[in-house]
């Protein structure tokens, strides 16, 4: 019995490796193994009609299916909390009109919620479980007017988010020093 159990466990562990394709479901399962994590971020916004960029840094807290807390530290202090229902900033003010949609998208990207994203984007996965990349292209023309494309990169977790708009603006978010949180 112990041998048999060990064999099954081994087979289960090896199964994804032996399979030819690493697909979105596998990636979602892989991301789901860390239900909560915290880390630091660097956000760089390149604006096409300016030569310079807007760069900010801070820490973040991510609880799968619940919320993302974005703690800006430089150049300004601000705490932004995104939940599937609402987006609130430090003063408790709600987002500008249309902001909820952006916030929802942001949340879906960080969660790797492919089912939700697939309704609006075409998804293309490349790489393997240790270095994967998902490219998202909007399906509807209305959305294509605002987003040219999005790329997600990572390994056990998401490490980089890159969002480009048709007018050449670009938002790049790097997540690093990520560590899983227990409990909460």
């Amino acid at each position: 019995m112990p041998l048999r159990r060990w064999l099954i466990t081994l087979l289960l562990l090896l199964a994804p490796l032996s399979a030819q394709a690493f697909d979105l479901d596998d990636l979602q399962r892989q991301l789901a193994t860390t239900p909560a994590l915290a880390g630091s971020f660097e956000q760089r916004r390149e604006l096409a009609d300016l030569d310079s960029s807007l760069t900010s840094r801070g820490t973040f807290l991510f609880e799968r299916g619940k919320r993302v807390v974005w703690q800006l530290e430089t150049p300004v202090e601000e705490r932004i909390e995104l939940t599937p229902e609402a987006i609130t900033d430090g003063s408790g003010e709600s987002a500008p009109p249309g902001g909820e949609q952006v916030a929802q998208l942001f949340l879906q990207l960080l969660e790797g919620d492919w089912q939700a994203l697939e309704s609006r984007f075409t998804l293309a996965l490349s790489g393997d479980q240790d270095a994967w990349q998902v490219a998202l292209t909007p399906k509807e023309a209305a959305l294509r007017e605002r987003i040219a494309g999005i790329t997600l990169q990572g390994d056990r977790t998401i490490d980089r988010l890159d969002m480009r708009t048709p007018d050449g603006d670009r938002l790049e978010v790097r997540l690093f020093d990520q560590h899983p949180l227990n409990g909460s």
Partner: peptide
């Protein structure tokens, strides 16, 4: 205004 410029969900336009 500064907070808005650096919010991940905003669409800032400094010009």
């Amino acid at each position: 205004a500064l907070r808005r410029l650096f919010s991940p969900t905003a669409r800032p336009d400094p010009v």
